[in-house]
Design a protein around this nucleic acid. Structure first.
Length: 424
RNA sequence: AGAGAGGUGGCAGAGUGGUCGAAUGCGACGGAUUCGAAAUCCGUUAUACCUGCAAGGGUAUCGGGGGUUCGAAUCCCCCCCUCUCUGCCA
């Protein structure tokens, strides 16, 4: 969430930024935060004063009791009863105000970076670059949902039977391809300096708040209510929350972690056209890279992450493009996001396979994730993450783009990982 | 899952109602000593919030929440976690 100090000191800049997101009630919300914060301070001062007096009285009473002066002690107790009333009502209002302040802050999305274009939808995203040749497919080329049936490598009907829609079963070469991609992505991440992490895939409520999935996307996560745990929608959640409530020693920065996890998304209300086959699932595999950096290095880090992801796509021989998301299409918590999309030749459309974002201090503020600068108090760090990569759409593009008469020709780099070079 | 023990500052570890944000030790930092270092000695050593130009002052924090009390690390209740034993189990 945004810092009150920033809202206060840079009000105009914040409002201008939120306008790029078409966030309608920015003015009112920011004013509400400032008013609530002022009220909070006044109450805090009043509360501290009466508390200080109460502490002093208690000390005096203690002294009198020790001296055996019961009568005077009783006299002072009368005053403390009165003070208690004040303290209690201050404390109650303070709790209310702090709650209201918190709720208002939760409503405010992150302020976009200056390079974020204005816009309302995905149509307004800026194409930064397009790389690679779109393949010419032979006549009769099939979309991936037909190919997976033809080669019997992914089975939606079986998933339907044992779980439900959106939970495919990978079989034979399909399963081996999944495992190969995960290993390939993890090895590449390690080579690029990321530490491999294998986190839990269920997280508690505090973690959901830490990275911003809660309260914003409550309905998007699967919730195991018996234990009040959430199935992660991305490894970002556990891997970033590793550092919740930490003051990270400077010599350990930047933190660069990578992890493979299955990801679970309810995708409530988002089914419709264009979600056939592997395009949208409730459970999918993803390797995620996460960085935590000092503020001055975060944008350089973001560039590095995008470059890493592009390297993966190039090695896989997939044509892709890089988008700079506009204010209207960006995630709630992000300051700047690059999406990477691969060309799916049979569907004749771009598929998002990665999203790399800098959250600046938005998550760190909730996480209380800080470092100790050379001089002064602990400061918030910047958090970043990116998919490197999400598997299903990569598989869709690999299948469609590489289909031949005699089967699917896999890119060279996967041969040793798969143990075969061709599907079919 | 059942029984028992326990959760205190960066770590170890005292503290069972009164001036305790907390002894002591270790570590870390600054200084003295030294040619330099070790050893020794002196000092400092958390976080958040309020207030103040600052120096400083105040409040809160001893797993989390609530309660008793003039006063709670200490007593009571609920929850979470850790350890030991038993059970179960990949």
């Amino acid at each position: 969430m945004l810092q009150v100090s920033v809202l206060k000191e840079q009000t105009e800049a914040v409002l201008a930024g939120l306008a790029k997101r078409n966030y309608k009630t920015a003015e009112a919300d920011v004013q509400a935060v400032l008013a609530l914060d002022q009220r909070r301070k006044d109450l805090q001062t009043a509360h501290d004063l009466s508390q200080a007096e109460a502490n002093e009285l208690a000390r005096q009473i203690g002294g009198l009791m020790k001296a055996g002066n019961k009568t005077e002690a009783e006299a002072l107790k009368a005053r403390t009863a009165e003070l208690k009333q004040h303290t209690k009502s201050h404390a109650e209002e303070l709790t209310q105000i702090e709650y209201a302040l918190q709720q208002t802050l939760y409503k405010l999305p992150n302020v976009p970076h200056s390079s974020v274009p204005a816009g309302v939808s995905a149509d307004d995203n800026e194409v930064v670059r397009e790389v690679g040749q779109k393949p010419e497919l032979p006549a009769g080329a099939k979309p991936h949902w037909d190919l997976i049936e033809q080669y019997d490598i992914i089975d939606f009907a079986l998933g339907n039977k044992i779980t439900g829609a959106g939970f495919p079963v990978y079989k034979g070469q399909g399963a081996r391809l999944q495992r190969a991609l995960i290993n390939f992505f993890l090895d590449e991440a390690r080579a690029a300096g990321y530490t491999e992490i294998q986190p839990p895939i269920l997280v508690n409520e505090a973690s959901g708040y830490g990275t911003g999935q809660l309260p914003d996307k409550e309905g998007q996560m699967y919730h195991a209510t018996a234990d009040d745990l959430y199935l992660i929608p991305t490894a970002e959640v556990p891997i970033t929350n590793l550092y919740r409530d930490e003051i990270v020693p400077t010599d350990r920065l930047p933190i660069r972690n990578a992890g493979y996890t299955p990801c679970f998304r309810r995708e409530a209300g988002s089914w419709g056209a264009h979600v056939r086959g592997l395009n949208r699932l409730h459970q999918f595999d993803k390797v995620e890279i996460v960085q935590i950096t000092q503020p001055e290095n975060s944008y350089e880090a973001l560039e590095g992450m995008v470059a890493h992801i592009e390297g993966l796509l190039q090695k896989l021989g997939l044509p892709y493009r890089v988008l700079r998301l506009c204010g209207g299409d960006m995630g709630f918590t992000s300051a700047l996001t690059f999406d990477l999309e691969v060309w799916s030749a049979a569907q004749q459309r771009w598929l998002e396979v990665s999203s790399a974002s800098n959250f600046e201090t938005y998550q760190a503020n909730r996480l209380k994730l800080r470092y100790r600068p050379e001089i002064g108090k602990p400061q918030l760090l910047h958090t970043l993450n990116g998919s490197a990569l999400a598997l299903p759409r990569i598989v869709a593009a690999l299948l469609e783009n590489n289909q031949h008469e005699d089967g699917i020709h896999l890119p060279e780099v996967l041969h040793s990982y798969c143990g075969f070079s061709k599907i079919g």
